[in-house]
Amino acid sequence: MTTHHEILEAALARITAGYVFPERTAAIDTALRSRLAEGAYQGLDERELCELVTDDLQQACPDKHLRLLWGEEPQPMDEEPENVARARFARHAREHNYGIRRVEQLDGNIGYLDLRLIAPAELGGPAIAAAMQLVATTDALVIDLRQCRGGSPEGVQLWCSYFFGDDEVHLNDIYDRGTDSTRQYWTLGHLAAPRYPDRPVAVLTSDVTFSGGEELAYNLKVLGRATLVGGTTRGGAHPTARIQISPHVTVTVPTARAINPVTGTNWEGVGVEPDLAVPADDALEAALEHLRTAVGRR
């Protein structure tokens, strides 16, 4: 059985080697070692250890992607081959309909998309195109991200591309520590369904909305393409690696960070604030009222 000391050592080694802000790793190392030395982790089972270490990590460095996760089913310690990992994720995306839970035409010819996952473009492209085809003739659109917990930057790029008229809109940049390089994300030139560039869009958010879901909301907000309605999102802007450090424990290490070309920053730790703040349960009704008013003014 892996000891608490071994779990902490393995987690700190991975954080030190990979965290996107290397200048912060010394403070993280000092904080966790101090907690270990004072006996804070004695007598805990692995699940409790993960919860307390995560709290301590985020006290030392408030990054919501920096965590220890406990899993009931033991996992192999050997690094999973990339093709196996891709196949497993592809199966997960397919079983969840590439993140698209519902597509509807609501009263007043307003389209509605309920997205729970932002699937990678190479997997979700046909499903995304099908959804956009179904709402292509609506007068306005609601994108419901209240239960969207993340996804792929390339998937966000594809979704965003449908809401602009061409391929000349700079959406986001991501800096990667491992390669010391920055990748730019622009709207795409070719899409498999009609664009939706000129009609009102409302995006629903909540304190569950996270990571890739937040990027979709943030991009559309700062580019003036959508009105955000609901609650402030959770605040996770860093692409993250998941590394198994014991059969039941995974450390998640942010290895990259988003840099928005308009704001020069991102939503890490603060979340994405709505334009129209209402309780998340009331967001759809508020968005529909806003959109009906907007459509009436056109």
Rank of each mutant, 00 (worst) to 15 (best):
G230C: 07
E48Y: 00
H290M: 06
D114Q: 12
R177W: 03
A13D: 13
V295G: 14
R183N: 13
G264H: 07
G264Y: 03
E273S: 09
L115I: 15
A129W: 05
T2L: 02
E6H: 06
V251W: 00
D139H: 06
G124K: 06
D144Y: 07
A192W: 03
E48L: 11
E122Q: 14
G189H: 08
Q105A: 11
V272T: 03
H238P: 02
T182E: 09
R234W: 05
I143H: 08
R199L: 06
A60C: 11
E104R: 10
T252I: 03
L171D: 05
L134C: 10
D139P: 05
V208T: 12
G151Q: 07
T233A: 03
P120C: 07
V229I: 05
R94G: 12
S211G: 15
E48Q: 14
V135L: 13
V135H: 01
D166L: 12
R91Y: 08
A217W: 01
N97I: 05
D198G: 07
N83G: 07
A286M: 08
L291A: 12
G296A: 11
Q147H: 12
A17T: 01
A31Y: 12
P74A: 06
T30W: 00
R47Y: 10
Q133G: 14
Y196H: 12
L36D: 10
L57T: 01
A286K: 12
S246F: 01
I174G: 05
A17I: 00
L113A: 08
I174M: 10
Q133S: 15
A10H: 00
V53S: 04
Y175N: 07
Y218P: 06
I245F: 00
N260Q: 11
A193D: 10
R225D: 10
A85H: 10
Y41D: 09
V272C: 07
R257V: 01
Q59I: 01
W159V: 15
I245W: 00
R47C: 10
Y162E: 04
G235W: 00
R149V: 15
D198C: 04
A10Y: 01
C61L: 03
T255V: 15
L171E: 03
G235P: 01
G269L: 01
V262N: 08
V262R: 14
D107C: 09
A217C: 08
G212K: 01
E9H: 00
I7E: 01
D167E: 12
L204R: 03
W267R: 01
P81E: 04
F164Q: 04
A26L: 13
W159L: 15
E6T: 11
T233D: 02
Q58R: 13
E122S: 04
L52P: 14
A277M: 08
R116T: 13
A87I: 09
G111H: 00
G165K: 08
E23F: 00
D107I: 07
A241S: 09
P239S: 08
V53D: 03
L12P: 05
W186K: 02
E73I: 04
M132F: 14
N83C: 09
V84M: 08
T265M: 09
L141T: 04
V222A: 09
E214Y: 02
A258W: 03
W70Q: 03
A237Y: 01
H170L: 12
L52W: 00
R292N: 11
Y41G: 06
A27D: 13
E289Q: 10
L223I: 04
E73H: 11
R257F: 00
L44K: 13
